[in-house]
Simulated assay, not measured.
Amino acid sequence: MRNSRRAFLRRGTAAIASATLLAGCSGGDATTETESFDGPVVEVGPDGRNVFSPGTNEPLRVEVGTRVRWAWRSANHNVAVRDQPADANWEGEPEIHHSGHTYEFTFEVPGEYHYVCEPHEGMGMVGDVVVESAEE
């Protein structure tokens, strides 16, 4: 019984490790926190709060062509797109992630983008990005 239990635990640990490694390959522009980045950063769940900062209380304003990074500061959050300009193609980061995860997107279409954290939308975890063309 012990040998089979140990073998089961080893197989389970290997499966979890494999799934974790593959999860990072599921698309989007996921990055690591240690990579250098010189654009605006939206903190996702800073200090364990259910907010985007900036974003929940005031929109993030950027120019067309700006790359934005979302950096997870606590667990169980996502970035689900609710509204965007008709010709935009932002898909957000719909999978749930935990502290240390980052996601980046370059906004090429001017307009207003509205997003939420689905698990915490009812608690007010919503955000906006306003993308302005350089001529405005």
Rank of each mutant, 00 (worst) to 15 (best):
R5E: 15
R5I: 15
R5V: 15
R6I: 14
R6K: 12
R6S: 07
A7Q: 11
A7G: 00
A7V: 02
A7D: 08
F8T: 07
F8L: 13
F8W: 06
F8P: 00
F8Q: 12
L9N: 14
R10W: 01
R10G: 00
R11A: 09
R11F: 07
R11Y: 06
T13W: 06
T13K: 13
A14V: 04
A14E: 13
I16S: 11
I16M: 11
I16T: 13
A17P: 00
A17K: 04
A17Y: 06
A17L: 12
S18L: 12
S18E: 08
S18R: 09
A19Q: 12
A19G: 15
A19L: 14
A19W: 11
T20M: 13
T20L: 15
T20N: 09
L21G: 11
L21E: 15
L22S: 13
L22D: 13
L22P: 00
L22H: 10
A23P: 01
A23E: 09
G24W: 12
C25H: 11
C25D: 09
C25K: 11
S26Y: 06
S26G: 13
S26F: 12
S26M: 14
G27R: 03
G27V: 05
G28R: 07
G28P: 04
G28V: 06
D29C: 08
D29R: 04
A30F: 09
A30L: 15
A30C: 09
A30I: 11
A30H: 10
T31Q: 14
T31K: 15
T32D: 11
T32A: 07
T32S: 13
E33C: 03
E33K: 06
E33S: 10
T34R: 13
T34K: 12
T34G: 02
E35W: 02
E35L: 13
S36P: 15
F37E: 11
F37K: 05
F37Y: 09
D38L: 08
D38C: 04
D38I: 10
G39L: 10
G39V: 08
G39A: 08
P40R: 03
P40L: 02
P40Y: 02
V41A: 05
V41N: 03
V42H: 03
V42C: 00
V42D: 01
E43A: 13
E43C: 05
G45M: 00
G45K: 00
G45L: 02
P46C: 08
P46Y: 08
P46D: 13
D47I: 01
D47E: 14
G48M: 07
G48F: 12
R49C: 05
R49I: 05
R49G: 04
R49M: 11
R49W: 07
N50S: 12
N50Q: 10
N50I: 02
V51W: 03
F52M: 08
F52C: 04
S53K: 09
S53G: 03
P54M: 01
P54W: 01
P54T: 00
P54D: 01
